[in-house]
Design a protein around this nucleic acid. Structure first.
Lengths: 349, 349
DNA sequence: AAAGTTCATGGTAACGTTCCCACGAGCTTG
DNA sequence: CAAGCTCGTGGGAACGTTACCATGAACTTT
């Protein structure tokens, strides 16, 4: 396999070919003024024939800017994080910046390793979903960074970009009320997770605003997995449950599991039980019925994180913590049992 | 936000602090022999207090090796490609190599842009799912590379890693036969795709091996989307269809669509219609019934691609084209209507 | 004891780029 | 016409690292 000239052309090769000095080539390449038309032509031609491309390693060394950004997420294979990565990629590409992507697997050791790799690569900044609780090297980190995701909550003084869980919960509770489920059951995540506390707090706020006692809401908790959701739903179904039966589930995987449990119990979703998820994973579109859910703005988070980082790097004023709004995506798992439902259905079509 | 010392420590800072020359520091860091214990201690201590970390830009410049690899895939958001990326990441990390990841969106322009970025970053090699038909810069590319995915087929002379479609089809046809569906219908992709031809060829080979006329198999074609699969299944259902009704679908998204069509027709999967998918997307695990499918070895492809690239870079002997085996994942969409089914069911549990 | 060998170390060039300074040619200005 | 300006250009240093060569001390060999 021939791969063209073994050695890449340097600015000196270009200069020799064009019969000028490397300073002149550098000036042409930088687009600066004070270049004779003849010299510019010769240089451009020489660039074309040699196939010269700027060596970013050298540029980075000279300028102190590598043109690289680091992204450390739990798992690129997780669709939410993949969306974040995609947003970050696209935004970075606009500024001719490339992304170094790592998966930490929620493992503090791997995280540390990847962070070290980023520092060695002299990335200009890093976007991180922090896993280590302490992250004690935070000050000594020596790199501009932005935190993303709910675990960023633990570090209130750092720049961060995440989804607006409070707004998401409001959105969910409002649609539940509108569809005739004023007091849905809750399926929460494990107590250890910060996102759970946020979710719960937002539900409480909604309740007091609507003059409702939050403690009357049924609540189950599980571990954010399909299997966990299935079991939690089983428990809910086994207990007493009055009124319109709806569940607001704190993540889509559990919601999918809940749907399975409903089916296993010989019931139907949404006719017997309504389910509202939270996340927006693609699989929710293919379940039966399709999962109605609140979608986190993954891509937007990636985009804003890069912008925030770029601002920080170039010394522009930074906003502290950014919470991006979530979006309701209606599919088929939420029944409308409100009194106005028939009227609305008629008017709607 | 304080970020520690504004300027990162260099090898010279370490040398001064340790009271030795930078050559000595370099030797200690490289782990070479011929260092007095005292000097080594002093250097190591100085490294610790200064927080020195090797500048990979400088190393890359000096050594001609950046320690970076490029990965250009159609879309990191696509679960298959995310798996590939993950495999590549993990394998690269073992050799202390970082991955630059780009999404080309099946767009030749973006691909070219990303490839340019890779060359400028002086990555040591690139893993590419080629989109451009011509890729005429292939020789002039000036970078070790490995192609991945089925589109690599268009370039028979280059190193590539992909899934073994022939083996996958054999696997699928065999399980279909075993379950009592000797002549399944086929749902293929669009004619333009190379993967389609491969799929079809493998089916034909299976047929001649089993003394079956391939032309008696019903066949529909569609566009690899859920909606396309739904429509294609509708057409299949509308036409004449004798015997045990099973469909071997060339990708999971279409299979999921087919499942929807079955339900819409008032039929049940797998009792009335069996569906076998191909891809292994996560959403298949959450459909109802779960999608039985052939899973492509995404992660393995990523791993092998990196290994292949590393071999090429360090001049080790390379194997030309690598096809990795696929795996059957049994869920609930494939009914067993063979005569031995009751017996097997009894024996099995 | 002279010569050779090993060991620990320091000095320096080079990688490719950009930025600053200097220099000469052709101007304009008084 | 001398002094000052602008313009186009070239030279060189610096960024941080590693590989090579040189040097002197301590030790071994004949």
């Amino acid at each position: 396999m021939k791969n063209g000239p073994r050695q890449r052309a340097t600015i000196i090769d270009v200069a020799e070919r064009a019969g000028v000095s490397k300073s002149t080539v550098a000036r042409v390449l930088a687009g600066s003024a004070s270049i004779s038309d003849e010299a510019r032509d010769r240089v451009l031609k020489a660039v074309a024939v040699t196939g010269y491309e700027r060596n970013h390693l050298a540029v980075g060394m000279r300028s102190g800017r590598s043109g690289l950004l680091g992204l450390v997420i739990p798992d690129i294979t997780n669709p939410f994080w993949a969306e974040v990565a995609r947003g970050a990629q696209d935004r970075a590409a606009k500024d001719d910046i490339s992304l170094l992507v790592f998966s930490s697997d929620w493992d503090a050791g791997k995280e540390a390793t990847h962070l070290r790799a980023l520092r060695r690569a002299r990335v200009d900044g890093a976007i991180i979903n922090p896993v280590a609780d302490n992250f004690d090297d935070l000050d000594r980190f020596g790199l501009p960074f932005v935190f993303i995701g709910s675990s960023a909550e633990r570090f209130p003084d750092t720049l961060s970009v995440g989804s607006d869980i409070a707004q998401a919960v409001r959105l969910g509770m409002d649609i539940l009320v509108e569809r005739g489920h004023p007091a849905p059951a809750l399926m929460l995540g494990p107590r250890s997770r910060l996102a759970r506390a946020r979710f719960l707090r937002a539900v409480h706020e909604h309740c007091v605003a609507r003059d409702l006692d939050p403690d009357i809401l049924l609540a189950e908790e599980s571990d954010y997995t399909v299997e966990g959701g299935r079991k939690a739903m089983g428990r809910l179904l086994a207990g007493p449950w009055r009124g319109s039966r709806a569940v607001f589930v704190a993540n889509d995987l559990m919601a999918l599991g809940a749907m399975i449990a409903v089916r296993e119990a010989g019931l139907r979703c949404p006719e017997d039980i309504s389910i509202l998820g939270f996340d927006g994973i693609p699989a929710g579109a293919f379940s039966w019925p399709g999962l109605t859910t609140i979608e986190k703005p993954g891509r937007q988070i990636g985009i804003r994180a890069v912008e925030c980082l770029l601002d920080q790097i170039s010394g522009r004023p930074e906003q502290g913590r950014i919470f991006l709004p979530c979006r309701l995506v209606e599919r088929g798992s939420l029944a409308d049992v409100s009194v106005s439902a028939p009227a609305r259905a008629a008017a709607g079509r």
